[in-house]
């Protein structure tokens, strides 16, 4: 579907006109304001009209799906099933197939690169924030569960041993999983230290919290 443009006395009116012309619903379009309109007496019918361009969100979804399918074809890692669904301002892009390991890479680095490039291509299509979150063979979900289990195991170690533990370097998203997993833990706190890309989470005993010795209080 092609984008359409419309004019009105205000941005709001222009958008309403475009929607009624096309029958699209507001939550399924990206709105680009070409001209906010204005000038003196704009509301009296003088001045410049407001102009907007509406693009169905499907265009972005199609672009993302197309790019991923092309990548799979070019790299010869098919067959694969590519699906996408829109959740608020995110396109959840997902690929499943027996030979897709190359698209994940070590620690998901290829997956992150691909996601970044697909988002760079999408950024060209209007200035909204609709972003792609991509997964291959459920890797992100599995990795998150692995990290949570790791966090809990190490927190236990810190609680019993009383000394801090430094995890291996992780990207911001993975560090966030660790921080979130332990944020309500009464015995430990977490912080990050070091510089990207070697920034690490440190798990340490919570000061003033229950320690292994004075636990009886």
């Amino acid at each position: 579907m092609n984008p359409i443009e419309a004019e009105g006395r205000s941005v709001e009116e222009a958008v309403r006109r475009a929607l009624s012309q096309t029958g699209w619903s507001r939550d399924r379009v990206d709105i680009e304001v070409l001209d906010e309109g204005g000038g003196l007496f704009a509301w009296l019918g003088g001045g410049r009209p407001a102009r907007v361009r509406l693009r169905p969100r499907l265009a972005k979804v199609d672009l993302a799906v197309g790019l991923l399918k092309d990548t799979i074809r070019i790299m010869g890692v098919g067959p694969a099933a590519v699906t996408a669904r829109v959740e608020e301002d995110r396109i959840m892009l997902d690929a499943r197939g027996p030979a897709l390991g190359a698209l994940i890479g070590r620690r998901g680095v290829v997956l992150d690169d691909l996601q970044r490039l697909i988002n760079a291509a999408l950024a060209k299509q209007g200035d909204d924030r609709l972003m792609v979150i991509m997964d291959v063979e459920g890797y992100r979900l599995r990795r998150e569960m692995t990290l949570r289990r790791l966090a809990e195991r190490l927190a236990g170690q810190v609680r019993r041993g009383g000394s801090p533990v430094t995890l291996e370097p992780m990207n911001p998203r993975e560090r966030r999983v660790i921080h979130l997993a332990l944020k309500d833990d009464p015995h430990v706190t977490t912080r990050s230290e070091g510089e990207e890309p070697r920034r690490c989470v440190v798990i340490e005993p919570r000061r003033g919290g229950a320690s292994p010795v004075d636990g009886m209080g």
């Binding site: 290829v110 992150d112 690169d113 691909l114 970044r116 490039l117 760079a120």
Partner: peptide
Amino acid sequence: RVVKAIRNL
């Protein structure tokens, strides 16, 4: 970041 992703891919 984009050129780095291109290079890696």
